[in-house]
Design a protein around this nucleic acid. Structure first.
Length: 949
RNA sequence: GCGGGGGUGGCAGAGCUUGGCCAAAUGCGCAGGAUUGAGGUUCCUGUGGUUUUAGUACCUGCAAGGGUUCAAAUCCCUUCCCCCGCACCA
């Protein structure tokens, strides 16, 4: 049993002593690998092992391919999460304490985490240790935190460039807002981490009959105005008359709506009224002038929208149900007839329900028909009505055809857009922002509202010229896997204004408004370039890092003398920084998760084109998938997040790496599973034991099985190298790792036992394992008698001459024949009730090889027969019969290179092995020499079988 | 809704770019056998369905339906379903 933790400690120490992963500028070609940095209050889990490990595999592979590689890693601390984190600790939030305990953070440490600086210090320290234990070959000297003042200076410089290019603009912007704490709230500020989803919605003005006033009503479906029969309010709610904005009109909305709306625009309440006042009024439909009574609706919520709902009973189950319930209670004064304004085949999207379930006469009231096909009615609970509503909305918007005049035949989305335009241009609607997923609560307990921030600063990613540059950069980049390109193209076309300044959070002060902080994704778009100089500028006073310093280092503007004079920085350091940047930043790879394509990665490309010369634009992006735990998605709520430290402790770094990194395709999710990791451990041990057992093996002349193993090794090297270049790690390591174990087992089972051959094989495997299982590879490399570091060796080269197609097809034939024989023997033994005593293999004559070859090439039966006619031992009748048989599978025919003598020798060599496998004697003879009636059936590499009892 | 990705044995997942050698590599699970005092481990074998004259064969099968082609998991069209993102949030 291998003690992984001991082995890892041993090699980590050895590497540290040799300082082999700390690279500086030298004569080798440079390669820089970066991975998206972790947020500073996030304890590392198994998902990080995949993200950072994938980059580590790339870094290690590239080193073996002769590159000088750096793999630096810093920490992200800007933004609000770390502040929210500190606050929660301060407030004794039990939830977060529980989370931290999962990661074995001691109580004493948790107590101290009330200061952001302490949190950062604690987790950066923890993470660095875990990087080491995971075998990440990172350069620790280049690590920095996004709140470091030296880095802030670079961000300021970057934003000055963006501003000078006119990429920073100002405007209005809606945000989620806590009225109690008076600040913007994002996901991590809300209870249960809910993202406040803001949506712009249309609010229709319904004039009140006989009054110069309007009832304001939000709706998702303005096109259903054609079907409105009445209005609904909540009879228990308070309403207000008010003025909204500057239009001077008098509006009626719920009191709750008024207090939310005031965060978006000016709201002046004139008077408070009870719902009864509204119930006495009649509204006018703005599109056709019809009169709409105001009625009580049981489902109307004062805090949703404006607290007023327009009723479309034909197309909304809630509205229909509300009217019917009023009717039953005898509270409906007048007849209200649903107005159908949209035609759709009801229940079309359901396979198990047919429209036959709805009574035909009800098809004119689709809302009712939908209730019927779901086998429910107007008294259903709200959830059921909600379900019917969703179904109806979906089918209608998908397949519905408008019936209303002027809109005939239009699809619903099309009609919606047109109606919106008409309403807006006629002054019959205004737009307001609403929270789509109400209610959302701030962690302080207050309900979140939408606030419109005036004077918001944006980065204008919609700028045409800039977008062109970014697209150009993207077009030249390598994406791994390339199928992510569609997502990039889409994101690139889509990204537009991005709010860039925030009122609170850690980070760099926004230069154009010193009361604001630069938003935290925007301050980390070119930070990777800072790694090239971070080790040199660490101790330089931030105020010395003036724009001219960065201009010179990153853009080659000016000269070092003058920069030294004006900044007071050492001339030699300035030169070193420039040299380092130019050396390291040409050939780079950026690793990241798929969730970052739509923001960080696109911004990364954009900002590089804005700041750097195109020689330093991004070259490659690698997207890796997530990690599941035992087949389930890891989440806080499931409590199944596997801390990285636990995985390392329990299984060791190498088996965990293999499982998580090579366990799935680059882009898809991999599964961290105990059984899979144990399976990996067992195979690693098999390989290690094979290396330890080498001295028991003999040497001597090479047999065919030895050539086979060499062939497999060299084929494997070629295959794995191609896969590694594309970072198809699963493919590569199935071949390098899993297949190698199977091949060795087969080699020994087939009587192989040449120590030199096995050693060559294991050496190749050990070297190719190095990027994935670095500690184990060193251990094995040394067990094979080498004194060097596997991590500093060259990646093996395939020797094409050693790839022996004949040896491989011979082995395949043996295996296939074995399978056939097993089946035939089983069948015969079952039938006869006796045990088979012997198996005779008859090897096809050479003329059959010629026949197959000609047929495969010429694809004509007559030519094939002609080609063998007259040859020794050829019976034309048998030849035609065989040719006809083969012709049926013409397209699958492949010429066979192996001559009868070689095939005979191959099977003769394998006879002992086959006998052992089958449990009976195995004899081999040539077709012509055989007395068996079945001999004629022999085909090249498919011997005819004869079973004797 | 819009955008992106996907649907293949009991499960995870190859194969799709470039149609034929190819349906299912590899792993897990399951079943049988060997080893073992038992369990576990390990090793071997089998594992979509069906027919079959002893095996090499054939049929059927890659979400559903249709098309192109001598030939389709692969190309085209239609439909259904699942996952992710939709912004100021890391």
């Amino acid at each position: 049993m291998i003690n992984y933790n001991g082995m890892e400690a041993k090699w980590q120490k050895a590497w540290a002593d040799a300082r082999i992963f700390e690279s500086d500028v030298n004569d080798k070609p440079a390669y820089m690998v970066t991975a998206a940095w972790p947020y500073v209050n996030t304890p590392l889990h198994i998902g990080h092992l995949r993200a950072f490990g994938t980059s580590d595999v790339l870094a290690r592979y590239k080193r073996m391919r002769g590159f000088n590689v750096i793999y630096p890693m810093g920490f992200h601390a800007t933004g609000t999460p770390v502040l929210a984190f500190a606050k929660r600790i301060k407030n004794g939030d039990g939830e977060i304490v529980e989370e931290l305990k999962v990661f074995h953070v001691p109580d004493a440490e948790i107590q101290k985490m009330t200061e952001p600086a302490y949190i950062a210090a604690y987790f950066t320290n923890e993470s660095r240790q875990l990087y080491g234990r995971s075998g990440f070959s990172m350069d620790p000297r280049r690590s920095f935190v996004s709140t470091d003042p030296q880095f802030s200076k670079m961000v300021e410089w970057q934003f000055a460039i963006l501003n000078s290019k006119g990429y920073l603009t100002k405007g209005r912007h809606p945000v989620g807002w806590c009225p109690n704490e008076n600040n913007a709230v994002g996901m991590h500020d809300t209870k249960h981490d809910v993202e406040p989803e803001i949506e712009e919605e249309i609010a229709v003005l319904f004039r009140v009959d006989g009054e110069d006033a309007y009832v304001l009503c939000t709706t998702y479906r303005p096109e259903t105005l054609f079907g409105v029969t009445n209005m609904f309010v909540n009879e228990k709610s308070q309403y207000v008359a008010c003025r909204i904005g500057d239009d001077g009109k008098r509006y009626y909305i719920s009191k709750a709506a008024a207090s939310m709306l005031k965060y978006q625009t000016k709201v002046e309440v004139i008077e408070e009224i009870g719902a009864d006042k509204l119930l006495a009024k009649t509204c006018i439909n703005p599109i056709n002038g019809s009169k709409l009574p105001v009625l009580p609706g049981f489902f109307v919520k004062e805090g949703v929208g404006t607290g007023v709902v327009m009723s479309v009973p034909a197309h909304a189950p809630f509205d229909y149900a509300a009217l019917e319930r009023l009717r039953k209670e005898g509270r409906l004064q007048q007849e209200i007839k649903p107005i159908k304004m949209l035609d759709v085949k009801i229940g079309r999207s359901l396979s198990d329900v047919s429209t036959g379930d709805a009574k035909p006469e009800h098809l004119d009231v689709p809302a009712l028909a939908y209730l019927e096909i779901l086998h429910t009615n107007v008294d259903a609970i709200d959830d059921m009505l909600e379900f019917a509503t969703k179904l109806e909305y979906r089918e209608e918007s998908h397949w519905g055809k408008m019936l209303a005049k002027g809109y005939e035949g239009m699809s619903e989305p099309e009609a919606r857009e047109r109606m919106k335009k008409e309403l807006a241009s006629g002054g019959n609607a205004i737009s307001i922002y609403v929270l789509q997923n109400t209610p959302v609560y701030c962690r302080c307990g207050y309900e979140v509202v939408v606030k419109v921030v005036e004077d918001q600063w944006f980065i204008n990613y919609g700028d045409k010229a800039w977008k062109e540059e970014a697209k150009k950069a993207l077009g030249r980049m390598k994406l791994l896997p390339d199928r992510a390109r569609n997502a990039f193209d889409a994101a690139m076309g889509w990204i537009d204004m991005r709010a860039v300044a925030r009122a609170q959070g850690l980070g760099t002060v926004f230069p154009l408004d010193k009361t604001k902080i630069i938003e935290s994704l925007s301050d980390s778009t070119i930070y990777m370039s800072f790694y090239t100089i971070s080790n040199f500028v660490k101790d330089i006073a931030p105020e010395k890092l003036k724009p001219e310093f960065f201009d010179f280092v990153f853009r080659g503007i000016g000269d070092a003398d003058k920069v030294a004079a004006s900044t007071g920085i050492d001339y030699s350091i300035i030169k070193k920084c420039r040299e380092s940047f130019e050396y390291w930043y040409r050939d780079t790879s950026r690793g990241s998760g798929p969730d970052l394509i739509f923001n960080h990665l696109v911004m990364y490309i954009y900002n590089h084109t804005a700041v750097f010369d195109n020689a330093y634009w991004p070259k490659q992006i690698v997207i890796n998938g997530f990690v599941m735990s035992e087949g389930e998605k890891m989440s806080k709520s499931l409590g199944n997040i596997v801390p990285l430290s636990d995985a390392l402790e329990k299984y060791g770094a190498d088996p965990s790496r293999m499982n998580v990194i090579a366990g799935a395709d680059l882009y898809s999710d991999s599964d961290f599973s105990g059984t899979a990791v144990r399976g990996i451990q067992e195979r690693l041990e098999y390989l290690y034991n094979a290396a330890m057992g080498l001295d028991k093996l003999s040497s001597g002349e090479l047999k065919s099985i030895d050539y086979w193993l060499y062939s497999r090794l060299n084929g494997k090297i070629g295959k794995a190298t191609i896969a590694m270049e594309k970072l198809e790690l699963r493919d590569a390591y199935i071949s390098i790792f899993y297949d190698s174990v199977l091949e060795l087992r087969r080699y020994f089972a087939r009587g192989g036992g040449n120590g030199i051959v096995v050693k060559d094989f294991l050496s190749g495997v050990a070297l190719m394992l190095q990027p994935m299982t670095p500690h184990f590879a060193e251990e094995m490399w040394h067990a094979l008698g080498n004194g060097s570091f596997a991590s500093l060796e060259k990646w093996p080269e395939a020797d094409k001459d050693m790839i022996d197609a004949k040896a491989e097809s011979m082995e395949e034939a043996i295996e296939k024949t074995l399978e056939d024989a097993r089946q035939a023997i089983a069948l015969m033994e079952k039938k006869s009730g006796r045990k088979a005593a012997a198996l005779k293999l008859m090897i096809a004559e050479d003329w059959k090889r010629k026949l197959v070859g000609t047929l495969a090439k010429e694809r004509r039966v007559d030519k094939a027969i002609a080609s063998v006619r007259g040859e020794a031992g050829v019976n034309t009748e048998i030849a035609s019969r065989i040719a006809a048989m083969l012709a049926k599978r013409m397209n699958e025919l492949r010429p066979v290179d192996t001559a009868q003598q070689d095939e005979y020798a191959g099977f003769a060599d394998a006879a002992e092995y086959m006998a052992k496998q089958l449990g009976c004697r195995v004899e081999v003879e040539k077709e012509a020499a055989s007395k068996s009636e079945r001999a004629w059936r022999a085909m090249p590499l498919k011997p005819s079988l004869d079973i004797a009892f």
